[in-house]
Structures are given as structure tokens and as C-alpha cells.
Write a protein that binds this DNA or RNA. Structure first.
Lengths: 153, 153
DNA sequence: CTAAATTAGTTTCATATGTAACTATTATGT
DNA sequence: ACATAATAGTTACATATGAAACTAATTTAG
């Protein structure tokens, strides 16, 4: 018959754990390309999407990288200003514009990708190949579950 | 002898995956207490820390929940304004002030904790008990590795 | 004892982000 | 054909966040 408060052990609480881990990793990665290339996380993600799938419209980019259209618009504006991407209005639908990396953008992209992969590799050293696959599988399941919960309430 | 660009498959890239998952989960959880109680994520974390360990100084809180002192200061200011916590200056060191939940704060805390745990439980339904333990172990290892990489460069 | 260095916490400024309103263009219903 | 709705993207406003400067109190070195 205790009246003690039920407490939340944050360090064992999954949402908190995910948040802290993701933030640490994201900041570490950001350090690799922020100063040398003057890119924000969102800008780099847009470049990564264009590096693989260009040409894409801003909406396409948003869908690929789970980013809302305002964030994409701002990242694109910044990348245009720095000459890293090119924009061409679609002649059939002048609301749309297809985006792709510029020559300079491709050069920057080509230098960042190995840095990003190398960082991932060093991070992965904490896990065996089997464990990496397990982690990916489980995080996929958590993600799918979180999406389901979001929709159904 | 291909000259194709090396591309980054974002959806398989660990930092990106962690970021997207953590953000979805964090937003979902936030929805549970944001509107009803008018709390931000940082404010709720401070309350959770105080709910378990009070009294704590602002610095103590920051260490417990991996939050820098500016963020703690702002969360504390907001919580004070809403009467959810109480502050008492330490008489031996007047730079410090110990913080604890107020009566209202304890009531709010007592209502949010079950919501948070229930959300975690529904999320965990994606995994078996064994898998939960595995995921926790692997994410701990990743976290430790990320910290090491941060320090050593 | 006193000047310099540390520490706790706050404020400021610049930048980032989310929501909603807005512009321009295209699609739809009658 | 034309009014209405929908879509692509931008802008505006309010709030959040990070880095650095700052205040006040305490500790340390000489």
C-alpha cells in the first residue's frame, strides 16, 4: 500500500534513449561536413537525395528524405545560393522545378560521401555484422510500429 | 572502371535511420503531454529527472538528462512560471539552487508517467522481450562507440 | 588577505524550425 | 468556359536552440 510516485527511469526509457543516441550520432556526423563545406544537416540530406536520384522536384526530395516542404524549400534556397544545385522549371507544369547537383555540388558530394561512410563504418565497429543486421531489423520494426501508432492514435 | 558517383543510400545509413526513428517516436510521445499539460520535451525531461531524484540543482539535472545548462535554465524558467517546480537557494552556496516538483508538479508528473510508459509499451509490442533486450544492448554499444569517436576524433 | 580563476546560472544574439498564410499554377466539376 | 478546389513552393511569424558573453558567488594561489 505504497503511495510513492511512479517514476520514469529515463535512461531505460526507449524514446529518450533513441533521442540521445540519434542526437549524438547526428552531431558527430555533422561535424565532419559542417565547417569544411558550410552545410546544414537538411542541406546535406537534400544533396544526398539528389546525388542518388536527380533530377527530383522539391516534393520528391521531401518524400525521399522525410522532410516537410518548408524545410526542403529552405535547404534548396541555401544550396542554390551557394551554387551547389541547379533548378529548372518544368515547362509542362510551371509550378514544379526539377533539381540536380551542379558541377560544384557533385564535387562536394563526392567528398562528403566517403566521410559519411567512413564514420558509419567506425560506428559499426561496435557491432558484429550479425548484430548490425539485427539492429537494422529491430529498428525497422520499431519504426513501422511507431508509424502505426501515430495513425491509429 | 566506372566513374559513377559513389552514392549514399540514406535509408540504409545508420545516422539517418536513427534520426528519423528518434524523431518520429519523440513527436508521438510529445503529442501525449504537449497539449494537455503545455510542456515541451525539455520541460518534461526536467520534470522526470526531478520526479525521481529531487532535490537536484540545475547542473545535476543537466548531467542526469544530458542537457546543456542553457537548455536546463530555460526549461526551469518555464516550469517555474507555470508553478510546476519550486526553487530554493542553497544557503551554503548561493550560486546553487535546489529544485523539486511542486504539489501541482507532482500531480502533473503522476499523470504523465503512465502515459509515457503506456506509449513505450505499445511501441515495444513490435519486439519480443528478448529482442527488446538485444536492442537495448546494441544501442548501448553504439552509444558508447559514438562517444568514444567524439572524443578521439 | 586579495587578485585571479572557477563555477552556477542567466541573458543575448544569431540561426533553425514548425505552423499557417500566401502566391502562382494546374486540375476539376458543372 | 469558368468558378472552385487542389498542388508546388515560398514567405511570415512565433518559438526553439546553440554559442558566446555576462553576472554573481565561491574557490584557489600567492
Amino acid at each position: 500500500m505504497s503511495n510513492a510516485l511512479q517514476a520514469l527511469e529515463l535512461e531505460k526509457f526507449l524514446p529518450y534513449r533513441l533521442s540521445v543516441l540519434a542526437q549524438l550520432v547526428s552531431e558527430s556526423l555533422h561535424d565532419l561536413y559542417a565547417q569544411p563545406f558550410g552545410l546544414s544537416v537538411t542541406q546535406w540530406r537534400v544533396m544526398a537525395a539528389l546525388g542518388r536520384f536527380a533530377p527530383l522536384t522539391a516534393s520528391d526530395v521531401g518524400q525521399r528524405i522525410v522532410m516537410d516542404k518548408v524545410a526542403v524549400s529552405r535547404a534548396v534556397a541555401g544550396l542554390m545560393k551557394n551554387g551547389l544545385i541547379e533548378r529548372a522549371t518544368d515547362s509542362h507544369d510551371r509550378r514544379r522545378a526539377s533539381l540536380k547537383l551542379s558541377v560544384r555540388g557533385r564535387a562536394v558530394h563526392a567528398r562528403i560521401v566517403p566521410l559519411a561512410l567512413a564514420y558509419q563504418e567506425r560506428l559499426h565497429e561496435a557491432l558484429s555484422p550479425d548484430e548490425r543486421r539485427t539492429f537494422d531489423t529491430l529498428s525497422d520494426r520499431l519504426f513501422a510500429r511507431a508509424q502505426t501508432l501515430r495513425q491509429t492514435g
